[in-house]
Design a protein around this nucleic acid. Sequence first.
RNA 1: GCCAGCGUAGCUUCAAUCGGCAGAGCACCGCAUUCGUAAUGCGGGGGUUAAGGGUUCGACUCCCUUCGCUGGCUCCA
Length: 650
Amino acid sequence: MLKVILPDGNVLDYSRRVRPIDVAADIGPRLAKATLAAVVDGQTVGTDFYLPEEGEVSLRLLTKRDIESLDIMRHSCAHVMARAVMRLFEGVQLAFGPTVDGGFYYDFALEHSISESDFPKIEAEIAKIIKQDEAFERVEYPHAKAIELCEELGQTLKVEHLKEGLSDQSLVSFYRQGEFVDLCRGPHVPSAGAIGALKLLSVAGAYWKGDASNRQLQRLYGTAWFDKKDLDDYLAKLEEAKRRDHRVLGKQLELFLIEPEVGSGLILWLPKGATMRRELETFIYGELLKRGYQPVYTPTIGRVQLYETSGHYPYYADSQFPPIEMADGDRYLLRPMNCPHHIKIYQSKPRSYRDLPLRIAELGLVHRFEQSGELNGMTRVRGFTQDDAHIFCTEDQVADEFRGCLDMTQYVLKTLGLDEYRVRLGLRDPASDKYVGRAEDWDRAETALKEVCQEFDLPDLEVETGEAAFYGPKADFVAKDCIGREWQLGTVQLDYNLPSPQRFNLEYIGADNHPHQPVMIHRAPFGSLERFTGMLIEHFAGAFPLWLAPEQARVLVVSQKFEEYGRRVEQTLREAGLRVSGDYRPEKVGAKIRDAQLELIPYMFVVGGREMENETVAVRDRREGDLGSMALPEAVERLRTEIANKTLRQ
RNA sequence: GCCAGCGUAGCUUCAAUCGGCAGAGCACCGCAUUCGUAAUGCGGGGGUUAAGGGUUCGACUCCCUUCGCUGGCUCCA
């Protein structure tokens, strides 16, 4: 006798073996048809999964309205795609085919290299399979039998996976659909017909089991939705993201330049980008000063020995520019991080516990030799400016300092309209012995970090055990932009390593008149100015709030007859501290407006005879259009207020 | 670094039939126009087709090498 408890509290009793599909059929034929999968006691299963014969289970039937179904359906898409690829090409070895955010992929090994030109025929084959609407049939085999089957099928990667990854499983499941059989945990939708709208997106290389020393496979990415409209929306979203691409906007709006003759991954900030960056720097420095940080400036190179002491050289030699060797044998390294210089500042005089916390801040330029395939616009570069600071404090001060970092991050992000951010807290794996520092210090620090995060009521705090650095726990910031994309920004990291006697041997004199080792906190909540700026370009789609806009206003004269008045207006605005230019070309106003609009200039001041007579300007807002005439001082005041408030424009 | 794709004027706007004269639009420059809220008209300059090598009577086109870019993978103090 089995009791099946449904989400609405109804209970169905069964004295025979049933599957979710049978339960659905008992409730109604329409539901039976719509059911794609089920959740039994919290576990997602296929519709043909046999429920136990005895006892009590909770059952939730999933239709395409349930969020879990999408994932299950996409997993089925991966199978259908694999089946199509196997039909079209010879010698296909299957690897893994999971779902990912927005879609799915499958990794294959095969002779033919798949390119996008193969997509139409693969998609056509997929469409055929969907139309045939064959069932996904679950079959379970003992481990040994499964190996035998995969060997028969010639699926050596699956054999390897069975022998290595699944060696502890006595029974493994396969899914069969027509001629296609694949080792798979499932669940799947009942049949291929449940798949709605599917599209292949890209093909890329991927290593077997994610290990670069293994053979490289071909990974085919796709996306799938229940409705064509959802697919179209998703594709539109990808288009929208493309429209905001900071690499394209950066060129169009003349913000920055990457010039191969200078070097890959090296940013040249053009005047407009530099103007924006200076505004950001001023803003960030202002906040740092308010929060008790002291700015310093240090050089971008240092002796190799310094980085040997820190332990970063030669450990990271592969991702550094090689040392510069001088005639006298001295070797210098382009600094890959700022901390050693800041440590030397800490050590420049004896420190007392009364000096702590000592917060040293620098927008420090560092260079790292990132792999060529990793470079990407401003977001992954070889020279970047960290919004870096190092806090030297006592163990007791860690919680307060971390609180300060969170608070500042929240404030700065909010000012930029990035209201949502989450924190990933990386803690140590207690079972591992790779960590430096005393266990009790770690425990205290990790507890403190967790408590502070809870205090901030962060919506989805992720605590990741085993993700700490070997030298200390860390918290990474991930912000969500206005179209919902997440950007990994900066980090706060505790460090028990660099202050230790094995490294720089940092000390302060405590209240007990004895030397103690301070805790060091590395923090760069926005990561790098390059990456942060790239993110802002995409977040605002190049249409910056007035305070950040490189050009805040442009004076447009209706005809060249009014150039003199126009120049007077321009000068007045400039003297009021605004970044302004004038358009005195012999063009029609319409053309000038169009150009200014395309350059995303927030305000246009149109001046002609009427304005000259009344000492006014006709103000045009980039978004709202013509605001009508106002006296010049009134217009100036409007802009100055907007700048002072760092108003976000819709 | 690895896999795949791509590289034509300042421009991620793009054309050039099978290997047969490198061509538009925008931008730029000049002239005319002096105009009221998203493109005035006419004219002009601009190219070692990423670079180098090869095949060919002939290469933007086919092959090789290098550089760069794109999408992933790997890495990330």
